[in-house]
């Protein structure tokens, strides 16, 4: 009895074929779906003819082409976006500065974890926006330079209210702490044993095993944190007490029935959010190329 076993590769390797179709899938959304939606929008808006509800895409695009034009004496699209961005950056950096060390400490010291985990788990589900009235009551409309007694009038820092930074930091703090903590406490015992048999001290183990092993999770925490900040700032700027920022401009334009400015702002907000995420994902890829490929 003989068996004939014959597996022949088809023309071109199967991998090559997959690669080709994958790249096609990747561009399809950009070259097909988005242009199609824009065409539908443009014709729909033209037929509807009610620009205070749905302005034509071309009108919104024209708005986006003039980002430095002053709108309703409230600054331009660009200047308000910059204000929001600086607020987010400061709030996020503060959250990272406090969140990462605390997460590392909690992950490596059981006592600290036991002390702090309940309060963190209790405060974490609270939407950061809920802190705004409290933050306003505490910090009033004080700006960050005012708190530190620095004169910064005329600079962009003059638009960074302490209460907003507080709310942003609070929002980003939790995903950063919790992910760092999970990263540290999830380090494989095998790597700790390996480090021990290679003569690593406790401090060296922390520096050369815990930290690099937790890095992918720390970066995930940072990515979630900055994404949340960008969510929160828009909502925060739409509330009373704000007088600048892209969220403020959006709300103000809506009151003036300037729906083209509203939609232009929405497009800017979405684009920056997507860019931040892409930056965090691709900017850190090289650092953690090993992740998910363990053996």
């Amino acid at each position: 009895m003989t068996f004939h076993c014959c597996i022949m590769p088809k023309n071109g390797s199967p991998n090559e074929h997959r690669k080709l179709s994958e790249s096609w899938h990747q561009v399809a959304g950009w070259v097909l779906v988005i242009p199609l939606l824009i065409v539908l929008w443009e014709t729909g808006a033209y037929l509807l003819n009610q620009p205070w509800i749905l302005p034509r895409f071309s009108l919104v695009a024209r708005q986006l082409m003039h980002p430095f034009q002053d709108l309703y004496a409230s600054g331009s699209l660009a200047s308000n976006t910059l204000v929001s961005f600086v607020r987010v950056l400061i709030g996020f950096l503060l959250a990272a500065i406090f969140g990462i060390p605390l997460g590392l400490l909690m992950g490596s010291t059981r006592a600290v974890r036991g002390l702090l985990e309940p309060i963190i788990e209790l405060l974490r589900p609270l939407c950061p926006i809920a802190w705004i009235p409290f933050a306003l009551a505490v910090f009033k409309l004080q700006t960050l330079p005012q708190v530190f007694g620095i004169r910064a009038s005329g600079t962009i820092l003059d638009q960074v209210q302490t209460g907003m930074v507080f709310v942003l930091s609070f929002g980003a703090f939790f995903p950063i702490v919790v992910n760092t903590l999970d990263g540290v406490s999830g380090v494989r015992r095998n790597y700790l044993m390996l480090a021990k048999t290679l003569g690593a001290s406790r401090r060296q183990t922390f520096l050369h095993v815990y930290l690099p092993a937790a890095l992918p999770m720390i970066l995930t925490g940072l990515r979630q944190g900055i994404g949340l900040c960008w969510f929160v700032i828009i909502a925060a700027e739409m509330l009373p007490g704000a007088n600048s920022g892209i969220g403020y401009l959006l709300m103000y334009a809506a009151d003036q029935s300037g729906m083209n400015v509203v939609i232009a702002s929405m497009i800017i907000i979405a684009t920056i959010g997507a860019l931040l995420n892409t930056l965090m994902v691709h900017g850190t890829k090289r650092l953690i190329g090993w992740y998910g490929k363990e053996f």
């Binding site: 390996l194 003569g199 050369h208 890095l215």
Partner: peptide
């Protein structure tokens, strides 16, 4: 060991150097 004999975030060279570095 049989598994997890190297630190995945280090290059081969850095892995071999680990003990000496410590």
């Amino acid at each position: 060991f049989q598994h997890y004999t190297l630190f995945p975030w280090r290059t081969v060279l850095a892995n071999v150097s680990f003990g000496m570095q410590m």
